[in-house]
Amino acid sequence: MLSIKNLSVKVNGKKILRGIDLEIRKGETHALLGPNASGKTTLAQAIMGFPGYAVASGEICFGGKDIASLAIEERVKLGIALAFQHPPAVKGVTLSNLLGKISKRTVKTEEFIANPKLLGREINVGFSGGERKLSEIMQIVGLSPKLVVFDELDAGLDLKNLAKLARIIKGKLLENGVSLLLITHRGEILRFLEPDIVHVMLDGKIICSSDDWRKVWRTIGKFGYEKCKECEFSSGR
């Protein structure tokens, strides 16, 4: 589904990603772990095609099509979606208005939020951390995507809210065969969504990939990300 080969990306002329290879198949859940400033969000933004994230070399293919030259909205139409870590406040535009404009299917909002007043509020204006995440997931479910990149879904959420989001993601996305790329620094989301493959990114490179997320996470928890450089758990995938 998503095939990234030898991808290098520059931001403001500085090379941030260096030769990334990543293959995500239909229905697979991948996690991308890494410390701050390792390039995880840059990869997410490059997959979406945000301006300022220039592909210096390599390719990004989705569904067999090279998407490197496509605009953001064209990538969305192909089925790629991104849930932002820090979605911006959009004054004047209510959540219900945006959902109505973008949704390819009816979104039963009561399955996401208990308080329907959230729908009438301007997007992310005064939203709590949990409300922002729910708003992001509602929008993404409405888009009916094939691949969703979650950027730091677990940042700023308590375990109860994280469990709730994970239940929604399983019910609305995974059970419909949607592929996920979970970008995470702390890794708490892994327990709830149990990725098929976990990758570790350091200094703009994926230095370790494994199908045993528990081992990788335990190692990182014990020794920190530096240990991953030795990559002893990599499956060589």
């Binding site: 979406m48 605009a71 909205e73 979606a81 004047g92 535009v93 209510t94 945006l98 301007e122 888009l143």
Partner: peptide, 21 residues
């Protein structure tokens, strides 16, 4: 860019922001 990441074209995103404004 946020609204474009929801599938709207740049002009559609501008229209939505202007209408909301």
């Amino acid at each position: 860019n946020y609204l474009r990441s929801r599938g709207l074209t740049e002009n559609e995103a501008i229209d939505l922001i202007v209408a909301g404004f």
